[in-house]
Amino acid sequence: MYNVAEVNAEECVAQKGCRLCIMYCPEANCIQMDTTKMVATIVESRCKGCELCVVVCDAAKHNAIKMVAR
């Protein structure tokens, strides 16, 4: 079992310009911008489960990411 990040599209404020998780995820090409829905999207196969995206999203009080088991 692995932990991976999951974005709740309802809570994500990327349409207002937030890119925090995309900026700080240590893995390249791992959090992508869905430019039609304007939400951050996790590429699960590249996620190492570090939880840094949760930390930066929560610190900005968006609380849009949680870790889920796979």
Binding site: R19, I22, M23, Y24, P26, E27, A28, N29, I31, Q32, M33, T35, A40, R46, K48, G49, C50, E51, L52
Partner: peptide, 25 residues
Amino acid sequence: DFGTATELIAEHSLCAGCPESIAFR
């Protein structure tokens, strides 16, 4: 360009959360 363009790094084996990965990106 993050999130919309393909970055010039592919998957590597540094530890999860390693700041070297962040700096490299």
